[in-house]
């Protein structure tokens, strides 16, 4: 009988891209389920359609355009589909969702060669494309009927969108501990900070990601918002408001920590996180969009190759 002869190591940690992606899917489930509860069937439809579009697009592109073995088995297209759905308003028409999936998978991911090769986070690229192309659909925060009654549901702006209307002082008052459980209005994935953080903790416990990128984003946002808020509370919202509103937690926990588009080293990750935190606050305070998380992450995605060049592991025996 012939035995395998190959170089060491002869065993493996039994970790695979598929298993890692499955963990991300599991981690996204609490927030997804909360969005289903509050936004009902229409949100379930968006999620299912988004995932199906991403998977089918990736399969079709590998099969018919690239003529290579399909990579859909690694489940990364499902992750992109989930993240895209969670970044859209619950009223988003399905054809808009499909365009988002095309941009995410076909343009942002497969054009660069597929998993591992893309520069920009696919789901965010899709979302930003929709945001600038279909602003009306993307900022329609009408709350559809969910399985849990929305007593104080109202259509209109998100908390971040209320800042110019109510002013920073009044907007700040809208954020309290309840916001941690349920946000008012916003993208599907942004409803429950707690559900998102639970998923993030799951990823940390499973050692899928490390906490440094997320923590450095939160810390930077807290510091920047703290300084501006202290200087002029009437004009600038405070740290808690900025940490709990918009795509902050979804972005910091699940989008900025995407392996492919974030730096490889710990300190590189910290620099990347500080950059995101700073840019998002600049956009929120001075930009023309109420929310800047997507733009901040995309901008820092561009800087990742440079950050990787500058920041390396500490090498043994070399100080």
């Amino acid at each position: 009988m012939a035995y395998i002869v190959s170089p060491n190591p002869h065993i493996h940690a039994a970790v695979s891209t598929k298993k890692l992606m499955l963990d991300v899917i599991i981690a996204l489930c609490p927030a997804a389920i909360v969005s289903f509860l509050f936004y009902g069937l229409s949100e379930i439809a968006i999620m299912a359609f988004s995932i199906a579009s991403c998977v089918v697009l990736e399969w079709a592109i590998t099969k018919y355009l690239l003529k290579k073995p399909s990579t859909t088995g690694d489940l990364s297209a499902i992750v992109t589909g989930m993240l895209l759905a969670m970044n859209l308003p619950p009223t988003c028409p399905l054809w808009v969702v499909f365009i988002g999936a095309v941009v995410a998978i076909a343009v942002a991911k497969m054009t660069f060669g597929g998993i591992g090769q893309n520069i920009f986070n696919p789901a965010i690229t899709g979302r930003v494309f929709l945001l600038v192309s279909f602003p009306t659909f993307m900022t329609d925060w009408t709350v559809p009927a969910g399985f849990i009654s929305n007593v104080d549901a109202f259509s209109g702006a998100t908390l971040l969108g209320q800042v110019p209307i109510l002013g920073a002082l009044e907007a700040d008052k809208l954020v309290n501990l309840q916001t941690l459980f349920r946000n008012i209005g916003g993208s599907a994935g942004e409803i429950s900070a707690l559900a998102l953080l639970a998923g993030w903790v799951y990823l940390l416990v499973r050692k899928v990601i490390k906490p440094w990128i997320t923590l450095s984003i939160f810390a930077t946002v807290a510091v920047v918002a703290g300084i501006f808020h202290l200087a002029d509370p009437a004009q600038f919202t405070g740290p808690l408001f900025n940490l709990l509103t918009g795509g902050m937690i979804l972005g910091a926990c699940f989008m900025a920590t995407d392996y492919v588009t974030s730096p490889m080293s710990t300190w590189g990750g910290v620099v990347y996180g500080v950059g995101i935190g700073f840019i998002v606050m600049m956009i929120r305070y001075f930009g023309s969009y109420p929310e800047g998380m997507s733009f901040a992450i995309l901008f820092m995605n561009m800087a990742v190759p440079l950050i990787n060049m500058k920041f390396h592991q500490r090498k043994f025996g070399r100080k």
């Binding site: 395998i4 190959s6 002869h10 065993i11 493996h12 970790v15 695979s16 891209t17 890692l20 990579t71 690694d74 990364s76 060669g113 597929g114 998993i115 591992g116 090769q117 392996y259 492919v260 490889m264 080293s265």
Partner: peptide, 15 residues
């Protein structure tokens, strides 16, 4: 326990 899995793309996880 010893068979190597099918090689796929680097996902830059840094492991």
């Amino acid at each position: 326990s010893t068979k190597r899995g099918q090689e796929s793309f680097c996902i830059r996880c840094g492991r």
